[in-house]
Simulated assay, not measured.
Amino acid sequence: MSQDPPYKKAYNSIFKMYSSRSNVPKKLPPVQGDDATLPLIDLSRLFSGEIEHERCVEEMVEAASEWGFFQVVNHGVPQEVLDMVYHEGRKVFDQPCSEKTRENFLNLSKNSYRRGNPNATSPSQFFWSEALQIDLTEIPNLPEDNKNLRTALEACVQEMTRLAQMMCELLGKRVKVKPNYFEENCIPANSNIRINKYPPCLSDSEIVGLIPHTDTDFITVLSQDTVGGLELKNDGRWLAVKPRPDALIVNIGDLFQNRC
């Protein structure tokens, strides 16, 4: 049985409309060939004395303000934890599509497994991807035969929560956010972990893995694989973010930007 969603069959009207209007101009801006050189911040400097600590925080503040993104190394998240999540995530996506789309898949809420875009009315609104998005409070609900997935997610959440709260508290001080604000408000019920799969898209720039968007949350901490594909917009230009194996990418979300 097929493991990949039948995108063309499920969204036949969209692709038929697309194939019949080949001369229509593309709606998405072309991605530039340049790689984005995101600010790279070594978090070990936070523990190298007061002067280095302050310089490190200043660099984070500047990157968050000018880019909305930055990379961090020496972040303390063990590579073996990330590898476990990659491995268990692949096992989920390798299951038959009929299994992934059944009700109560993995004992999770209805919209945890996501594919395509049911609200798309044109190819430019469609995304060629799968995702498993789990509220942190749901991780204990994973069935016993998915114990390895549960263990991997619990370990990842513990490490990412520590890292995210530390960075939020440091950035928040510069915009007069009260101490422990994020620890009190970014609780498991308001947070989630998401694993994405981006199969090869149709060979056209109008159909992409994920449509242009901003993250609506406070902060996203992202681990890229070595394949790449992440793109961001800066000063009106789309730039590809070259993967760096030892780095995590930090994305300042809409809630944090509005708070600032």
Score class of each variant (00 low, 15 high):
131 A>D: 00
214 T>C: 12
121 T>C: 11
244 R>C: 11
23 N>W: 07
66 E>A: 12
247 A>Y: 03
199 P>T: 01
172 G>F: 04
42 D>I: 02
14 I>W: 00
242 K>N: 10
88 E>C: 06
195 I>L: 06
39 P>A: 03
53 H>K: 09
84 M>A: 14
115 R>P: 03
203 S>V: 11
20 S>C: 12
66 E>P: 08
205 S>H: 12
168 C>K: 00
251 N>Y: 02
152 A>N: 04
256 F>Q: 01
239 L>E: 00
222 L>E: 05
220 T>K: 01
91 K>T: 09
99 E>K: 15
221 V>H: 01
113 Y>V: 01
78 P>V: 04
159 E>M: 10
165 Q>V: 15
48 S>A: 15
184 E>C: 07
124 S>I: 04
79 Q>H: 11
74 N>D: 01
178 K>Q: 13
51 I>V: 14
252 I>D: 01
15 F>I: 07
188 P>M: 07
169 E>Q: 05
194 R>G: 10
110 K>T: 11
223 S>L: 06
142 L>H: 05
157 V>M: 01
154 E>H: 08
105 F>V: 05
103 E>F: 07
255 L>I: 08
122 S>N: 11
258 N>P: 05
168 C>D: 07
243 P>D: 06
147 K>Q: 13
28 L>C: 07
109 S>D: 15
167 M>E: 05
22 S>F: 09
228 G>D: 03
237 R>I: 13
189 A>K: 12
29 P>A: 10
30 P>D: 07
86 Y>D: 11
127 F>D: 10
124 S>L: 02
223 S>W: 08
51 I>E: 15
239 L>W: 04
34 D>S: 14
155 A>Q: 10
144 E>G: 08
259 R>T: 09
116 G>S: 05
33 G>W: 07
205 S>A: 15
248 L>P: 01
123 P>H: 04
238 W>R: 05
55 R>S: 09
185 N>C: 09
248 L>S: 00
170 L>F: 09
130 E>D: 07
195 I>E: 01
78 P>T: 06
153 L>Y: 02
11 Y>A: 10
135 D>Q: 14
157 V>K: 03
197 K>Y: 15
178 K>N: 12
108 L>W: 05
133 Q>A: 12
236 G>L: 06
220 T>P: 03
149 L>A: 04
3 Q>L: 13
104 N>P: 00
109 S>N: 11
23 N>C: 09
45 R>W: 05
173 K>G: 11
200 P>Y: 10
106 L>I: 09
148 N>H: 12
53 H>M: 07
74 N>G: 06
